[in-house]
Amino acid sequence: MAEQTLQAGSIQPEKHSAAYWVFSDSWVLIKRSLTHIIKSLDQLLSVVLQPIMFMLLFRYVFGGAIDTGPTSYVNFLVAGILVQTAAFGATTTALGVANDMQRGIIDRFRSLPMLSSAVLTGHVVSDLVRNTISTIIMILVALAVGFSPNADPLEWLMVFGILLLFTFAISWLSAILGLLAKSVEAVQWFSFIAIFPLTFASSAFVPAETMHPVLRGFAENQPVTHTIEAIRALLVGTPIGNHGWIAIAWALGIIAITIPLATWLFRRHTTR
């Protein structure tokens, strides 16, 4: 048996079209990144436990102190927490990409006759799955602590649609971060200082009207706020205005720039 197992050229690859292989390679690497969620305690905790903790903490710590007008605080809060968790969740791609680039495994992928940029797709798509799970968990917890949405099925669908689009955009942005970073620790640190101000200087936890005018100017016009306001409007019926369109435009704009940029950086990084 030994002889046969090691016999050079004893096995032939399958023949398929180039397009088939793009999907096949991507699927194999998506499965890989999804397996990471289940196999790494770190990830599992951040997917399941962190959203529960955030929801409960904000609901009960800030719930009494912040005036959100006619909307109850928990109803106000859910959209903010959903978007913040999605943003943090999407930075997992940065870690995953940096990890792959810094370890030898990227060289393995690149020595195979595969589409190696599918590594990026794998991480980004698994972020979508991870965030969907977190979103569902958070909504269930929210319902248990008094969240009373008035969204109809179509509006729920739109909530998930906007969240996924937002996640997709931030994940590709994270992929770029992961490609540029010199170390995994730098990625952790950088995603923290990028995401924290963006999510807190928004209407996630307090209405923007209560902020200092300068901060307010930023908070009211940045993409995270538009995304939160759109989701809040769909969930609890606050006025939606142009937030929906602006949120979608931002996401599409980010995606249109980041996908080609990330792919280009990946190629450059890997052919030094």
Partner: peptide
């Protein structure tokens, strides 16, 4: 390569099967 290029989180079998598929 000089340093092992394996996926730490996957099992040995999963590593092999994954790379097999990527080798087409």
């Amino acid at each position: 390569g000089q340093y092992a290029a394996v996926d730490e989180y996957l099992t040995g079998r999963e590593n092999l099967e994954m790379m097999g598929r990527l080798y087409r």
